[in-house]
Design a protein around this nucleic acid. Sequence first.
DNA 1: CCTACCGATCGGTAGG
DNA 2: CCTACCGATCGGTAGG
Lengths: 189, 189
Amino acid sequence: MSTKTAIKSQAKRLFKEQGYIGASMRELADAVGIEGASLYYHFKSKEVLLSDICFELSDQFFSSLHAVSSVGGQTADVTLSNAMRNHIKIVVDNIDASAVFVNEWRMMSEPAKSEFKRARRKYEVFFKDVIENGIQEGTFRKDINADLAAITILSALNGIYTWYNPDGDLSVEDISTHLENTLLNGIKH
Amino acid sequence: MSTKTAIKSQAKRLFKEQGYIGASMRELADAVGIEGASLYYHFKSKEVLLSDICFELSDQFFSSLHAVSSVGGQTADVTLSNAMRNHIKIVVDNIDASAVFVNEWRMMSEPAKSEFKRARRKYEVFFKDVIENGIQEGTFRKDINADLAAITILSALNGIYTWYNPDGDLSVEDISTHLENTLLNGIKH
DNA sequence: CCTACCGATCGGTAGG
DNA sequence: CCTACCGATCGGTAGG
């Protein structure tokens, strides 16, 4: 693993554990095994490190949507289920980066911050549109607010990083099945 | 409003906007209209401010549970619905504090941090127990994982602070109805 | 609640 | 990738 990759990897962990501002560049350098000043050979600033981490994950989320929407002729519930499962897998495979993505993006300055917000909104709108299609198809109930449902679902999926234990006995498959069930079918009989 | 109350109120806003570590005591003092050093007359340290904010909201959540469980003879779906609605109202009425509660509690040091985690887990377990009761009653489906469902529901409810707009056209009642519907009944027909 | 102050630490740069 | 360094800012205290 290159030094640059090692820096990014440790940055994800430290930004998650102590927050972007709480984690110092010296501490990061220590974790990697170099001097503080040497970090600036690899990254122009602390903030570039933050935006790299956030947009790297954002790109993964959009790749997933691209894969999901390139499969045509599915009913909305299948499309939504696929998008959710992909999202869950990305979060579980990138727990530290997900925490940064969810919590620390606000610390970016402009114009990166606005770009990030636009991307995140676009992602939410994809989910909203799938749900709206499902309502028109008759797959989903017509009394639901598609935008609110999309945000609710994504909140629950993004929350996974707060409780997921990589050493626990829940597989990605288990989590996907249960969350999909709860959010799409509800818990009532 | 007393100075102490004003400090806490501004601290909620600043901790939300800039994170606990990113918000400085000088900035907080400016927002209140006093000198930085004067804050220490009202609060022993920055961290006491943080834990006060977190535990104040935690207390509100537990008061709500107490009210919910003192009403006996309800089926689990009604109990869960009441607990969810109360939770949503507390979040919406305390948007800034909710952001701190969800994101910044990790910055507390021991023993407050462990105490906070225990309280939060106890709260989750209440939800889990209600769901388990509902499964045994036959109110809820028996193939759901009660603990996972509880955490999923609370993730979605806690996420409200990230998108709720106090000046928007969604009332607390609207939000409660839609989220309850989505999470308890699912979005499928 | 203020003035005056302090040691510690921060992100970042110069020059090699 | 390191040594040496810098201005700025931090949370907090002393004494009034």
